[in-house]
Design a protein around this nucleic acid. Structure first.
Lengths: 238, 238
DNA sequence: GTCTATAACGAGATAGAC
DNA sequence: GTCTATCTCGTTATAGAC
């Protein structure tokens, strides 16, 4: 009984994974807008109606791919943060640690995006027409942001961070963001952090989507320096 | 003779414009990946083969839409720069002028993007599968960047700009970018400028594509402050 | 010469009967 | 689950209207 149940569940997860793999291939070839259950089924030698046992609609398959992509990126970023922490523990100045973790996370985001451009486009590119992501994607989508908040919080605990003062018309919103995201950080730092988060993906997106073509050639050092300067803007010092 | 020629040319430009308008509507409804000549023709009461008198292929129509979008954005940004310059001429400190023009351009980019989200997605969103933009798009695509370079150059002529020193592994690339983009600016400033350019579109893209949903609510002052801080990063002072 | 319409091709998607 | 009839698409060749 257990074995039967286990085998059934195993088969189900295997087929689910195969479906998502085929869908990711279609994503790369045709784009998210043209993702069709039929094409996925054809590639797997199944019939389209069989897919509905695993994903009730095309949008649900899309949602699963989006969550997987956010999680894959989040895992890469979290692994880089942990590795950066370990690296910093080995040597050097203790105060440099948060900045090293920050840049490690940024470079992990870039590396993941360059390795998975189509999944990057799925989550940070143009919205898919006719599709709106459900709330279930939010926890996965938040992972990189939470990571950056955590690094900033660690740095703030060691040594109080500062950022330039806010204009009057931004104070209320900054307080609101602070209450939502990081009550233990100063509002200017929270505002700077959210901006840095968006700007990080601006740098990554420009590289992945080809806007740096014939503008920036040696991109790794360019990106690293920009990531360090993003950290400085949040108050992290070297 | 002249009138006949003129009428013909007028009709041609009118129909060309009508085709592009219909295509833009389809862009908004279905996305760039699903742009189809037949649907455009249907909407105009024409037959698909007739469109080939105006656009030799579907990709050429896409290219025309991309160039139009870049030019529309570029014109909005250039108008804002001119208006910012005029505004600054009226009053206030002379040294504040470049920063005001910088933020005016950034806010014009944001305003245009929010007013034309689908065209923004076409030029700064996910690449269209199976399509690669020809070199003819480059001049239009460069307009906003050139505008920011121009503002920075003006500021540098008044008062030498500085940016933090570059790491050794970025010096060569920064010199290359400087030679290509702005030989009269210091290499650190050029590197900071290119990064700021990408980061600007990170901020705009996050807002247009909905990443700020439930994160940033009062977005105009948030963006304005971030744009000012981008300018600071390039060396522009208030 | 300039344009539009008809018809067709090969490829792919889709809906429904079986 | 299978098969078929009917759609869509980009693109071309061709013929005729202005």
């Amino acid at each position: 009984m257990n074995t039967a149940k286990g085998a059934r569940a195993r088969a189900r997860t295997e087929i689910t994974a195969a479906i998502k793999d085929a869908a990711r291939r279609q994503l790369a070839a045709e784009g998210a807008a043209k993702l069709s259950l039929r094409a996925v089924a054809r590639e797997l030698g199944m019939v389209s109606s069989a897919l509905y046992r695993y994903f009730p609609s095309r949008d649900d398959l899309l949602t699963a791919l989006i969550i997987d992509a956010y999680d894959s990126l989040g895992e890469a970023a979290e692994a880089a943060k942990a590795a950066g922490a370990a690296e910093a523990a080995h040597g050097a100045v203790a105060g440099a640690e948060p900045l090293e973790r920050w840049t490690a996370v940024c470079e992990a985001v870039r590396g993941w995006a360059l390795a998975h451009p189509h999944e990057y486009a799925l989550i940070y590119g143009s919205p898919v027409p006719g599709y709106t992501a459900p709330e279930t994607t939010v926890p996965s989508a938040a992972r990189v942001g939470l990571l950056l908040i955590g690094i900033t919080r660690d740095a703030h605990e060691r040594e109080a961070l500062t950022a330039p003062p806010l204009p009057a018309d931004l104070c209320e919103e900054a307080e609101r963001m602070r209450a939502d995201l990081a009550p233990d950080l100063p509002p200017e730092v929270v505002a700077a952090l959210v901006a840095a988060w968006a700007q990080l993906f601006g740098l990554v997106g420009f590289e992945v989507f080809g806007q740096f073509h014939r503008v920036v050639e040696d991109r790794a050092p360019f990106f690293r320096h920009a990531a360090v300067r993003l950290a400085h803007g949040v108050g992290l010092r070297s």
